[in-house]
């Protein structure tokens, strides 16, 4: 466990790159074949290059679309956040799109507002590494909309919804409409299990997102953690005819073939890389996927980068 204090000076870019060199090939093995340099090659980019040499093409950014910061009720929260950055460094992840959730779900306005303030602080502690989602419980419509508007104004990159309501419940429509207005994505907790999950009676699945997307085709919906949400084959097939819904590849389940089936069924343009704190699982499944290196680069960061550019 990394025990570095949260207020330790941030690593310099050179130190970060040097540290990452040992694991540079972790994500770059296939990317290198696309012409972009691996991080190991990037590690020497600060050194002067002979003018006759062409400028190397930069490696595409690697963005984890689904990460979490620790709630401050946990005494180790600062170390835990630091450990997340350390893991990202070791695995070659450039940016982490994080939400900070209340320990008890069915969050109160005070609860999610507090989480979002802490998430904002984290973006300042780890600038350009931590990007923040605004987490709300859409059941508190007024406060949720106010907080989304405030947070996006402060630089948050999207909205995170949990399992307080089904994605087809009209109570979440104002949140979706505001996200469309602001041009930000909605990362929505998801899962499809072949039994009733009593702890999560209102968990949404691919079918809910497909229905929501028909109502709001302009929304940038991200169906969360296909590898942590039960029957992933069901989820992928359910999203086939919902072309505006993205699928997050994160989760702890290591099953072979998920990424290939998703690319085959949905297309690589609809997949976004994530870990959801299962870091080596998240990175490893993309590294292991038998897909075109160009598609791999899109999944690892290109698609998420394009989504984030849509902010108005």
């Amino acid at each position: 466990m990394n025990t570095t204090a949260a207020d330790e000076p941030l690593p310099t870019r050179r130190r970060f790159l040097k540290h990452a060199t040992a694991t540079a090939s972790l994500l770059a093995t296939d990317l290198a074949r696309t012409g972009g340099p691996a991080r190991a090659e990037l590690a020497i980019e600060d050194q002067p290059e002979p003018k006759s040499k062409p400028e190397p093409e930069r490696r595409p950014k690697v963005i984890d679309c689904h990460a979490h910061l620790a709630h401050r009720s946990k005494p180790s929260w600062a170390d835990d956040d630091r450990a997340l950055i350390d893991a990202a460094d070791r695995l070659g992840i450039d940016q982490l799109c994080c939400s900070l959730l209340t320990p008890r779900k069915g969050a109160t306005p005070e609860g999610f507002q507090e989480c979002n303030r802490w998430a904002l602080e984290a973006t300042k502690r780890f600038p350009d590494r931590v990007l923040a989602y605004c987490y709300v419980n859409p059941g508190h419509t007024k406060e949720a909309l106010e907080d989304i508007r405030r947070c996006v104004g402060e630089g948050f990159i999207g909205v995170k919804l949990y399992n307080d309501h089904f994605a087809t419940d009209p109570v979440i429509f104002p949140v979706i409409e505001l996200a469309i207005e602001l041009g930000v994505p909605i990362l929505h907790h998801a899962g499809h299990l072949h039994y009733f999950l009593k702890e999560q009676p209102r968990i949404s699945d691919g079918g809910h997102f497909a229905e929501l997307a028909r109502r709001y085709p302009e929304a940038k919906l991200i169906c969360a953690h296909v590898c942590g949400g039960g029957d992933w084959e069901w989820t992928i097939k359910a999203l086939r005819h919902a072309p505006t819904v993205f699928l997050d590849t994160s989760g702890s389940v290591l099953d072979d073939g998920v990424v290939e089936l998703a690319v085959q069924t949905l297309g690589a343009d609809r997949l976004v890389f994530g870990c959801d704190m299962s870091m080596t699982a998240g990175v490893g499944r993309i590294r292991g996927a038998d897909i075109d290196p160009v598609d791999k680069a899109k999944i690892l960061g290109g698609n998420m980068e394009a989504i984030l550019k849509g902010r108005k």
């Binding site: 695995l91 290591l254 099953d255 072979d256 080596t280 490893g284 292991g288």
Partner: peptide, 17 residues
């Protein structure tokens, strides 16, 4: 690794890092 149920790469990766 759990292959071929699992991708072998996560196990290889955790050993590497």
């Amino acid at each position: 690794s759990g292959m071929p149920f699992n991708y072998p790469d996560p196990a290889l990766l955790k050993l590497e890092v």
